[in-house]
Design a protein around this nucleic acid. Structure first.
Lengths: 192, 192, 192, 192
DNA sequence: TATGAATGAGTTTTCATTCAT
DNA sequence: CATGAATGAAAACTCATTCAT
């Protein structure tokens, strides 16, 4: 009883830290956010931060976990709510717009990738596995939407690249402006 | 005369610096490359480096200039060599594959974007203008390739997003595997 | 009754802590052993550790007490078992070899001395008194062994220095290799 | 010319740093001497310290080098000045007394050994090689002094252990008090 | 008795930048 | 033109110690 109460507190504190870190990473970039910054924003000491996370990489890992989970959940929910007679281009376009619109999260997305390929093999593995997951989810969603399910894999790959590219462009403020047009382009031969 | 001679030397030295910096940025990441590293790789002193570039941001700007020029040139050359009866999907697919295959440059590409949106407003402007340029070049190329030029803008936007996304994915080692399939998907309704 | 029961438990817990600490000090060096390490190795909390020992110095003092007692006991036992017609060089050589062979304890021995002369006046006093004791014990042993008891004090001093030096050298992996030869050298003029 | 001048300055600065570090290590113990302490004592910045020594281990290595050289020189000089008809016990006793009397250097000696066996494999190798050297020097000196050169190796081992043990005891303030007596004990059978 | 969350002062280390020569 | 010595501000991280429960 005791113990579980404390454990809850622990989980709670950790998630408070993750949220604060995420916010700062998004606002000023992860590279330019020091552990002091995070501690200060939570009004705790650096020592306390280290009590919960024994290194910056550790904390970053959980931050990225939380970020990837958010995207996974969004895709999952999307796939779950699909029904047959829905226009693929509209439905997909809507999700993309949504993902691109969380402009500032893109900064974090970008950083996670950069960190992955530069410094952090563990994070890289985790990130690739997330991408794998997303690919599967997208395929499942498309299988519901499309008549011709033969090209589902290609479609899914295309969409995933577009998601990444779109997030980057949006964050840069060079967002794709004609998503609807692009969607109708892509799905032209596949009306629901 | 004198002066211009010096200027030539100056330009030469600067470009040597840019090349060395680029190489290091690509190899070990820009964040993890110190000015000492660059100076050492050129066998010059840090002081000399500062003689040519008064700050790291300054140097980064020129590095990115050189990087963007390389991409512009590639697109320019591509657009120039297009002739009418060429299959759009093949031609475009070839360029994409090429851009994606320079895997390690992607690290630099990614960093430039990250730096742009995090720290460096000037770089951001420059980068956006490069993207604008690329968009135009792609449009021009597509105009030659495609019959139905009505959708050229949408196509160009799509391709540009795909370039960014594909570079990122390739760098991450999660590269798109079915570019040909994707190309035929996209251009299905637009045979040359 | 109550109280003494508690006291027993107390003594027991303290000695468990001392043993764990000793083990870690020997394995990884005292300087590199944190109180967290010790607590973890006992599966108790740091708070509990502080319940029994109000500071690291406090704990170290008891650890050293236990270590010195071990040596004292060894010398005591040695002196007790001596009988007259025994060859001094052999008998002494055997003890030395034994003391030198506990290679890893040397790390602790060394640390105790270093700590004594650097930081910890109290420990220093304690250590000197232990050395005094050992000197007396050695003298007593030698009185039994040797014919000419005139030089016993010099012999004892020599042996004690050799013990310290030998422990250090052994720990360093530069152990004395010819103890027997050295012994016969020293005791050449003093056959039993 | 230029360059060599600068090199001289460099060597000079490094040796200034070594001297200051040595002094502090001796005064307050190496473990308790931070790089800030050393920088402060030299009125330079920490950055400057790192300009000359890229890590604390690096600096320690040079400090220990300088310390070991000092001992080597002393032994060398001793061996060089020996002539045949000199009483071994007196001559050796004098050197020992001298080595033991530099009481505070013992703190450094002790620390070097402790650090060697705890943390620093490189230092350990260096230290062992120094001890090897000293052993050779002592052997050479003894060969001159003693009639019966058969036991020279044993004598040298014995003396080296005594040096280490004696340095430790002296530093602890429990110095051997009867060195002369001990010497005559050891060399009893070997008059010059 | 026992806990573990919290702290803060300290450590080593990095690096862009300045400047006298 | 070129140098490299010097700096200082900041970073990540450690750990003995305290204390409310």
């Amino acid at each position: 009883m005791r113990k579980s109460k404390r454990d809850y507190a622990d989980v709670d504190n950790r998630s408070r830290i993750i949220d604060a870190a995420t916010e700062l990473f998004i606002k000023q970039g992860a590279q330019d956010t020091s552990l002091s910054d995070i501690a200060r924003s939570l009004s705790i000491s650096k020592g306390t931060l280290y009590y919960y996370y024994s290194s910056k990489a550790d904390l970053l890992f959980d931050v990225s976990e939380s970020y990837m989970t958010r995207i996974s959940n969004r895709l999952l929910e999307w796939a779950k709510n699909l029904k047959k007679p829905m226009p693929a281009d509209e439905v997909v376009g809507k999700v993309l717009k949504e993902l691109f619109s969380a402009e500032n999260r893109g900064k974090l997305h970008l950083y996670l990738i950069y960190e992955s390929i530069t410094n952090n093999e563990m994070l890289k593995k985790r990130l690739i596995s997330a991408y794998d997951q997303w690919l599967v989810m997208i395929k499942e969603g498309l299988s519901v939407l499309m008549n011709d399910t033969e090209k589902v894999t290609e479609y899914a790959e295309l969409l995933l690249i577009m998601i990444t590219g779109g997030i980057v462009h949006s964050t840069l403020g060079f967002g794709p402006q004609r998503i609807d047009g692009i969607m109708s382009l892509i799905f032209s031969g596949n009306p629901a």
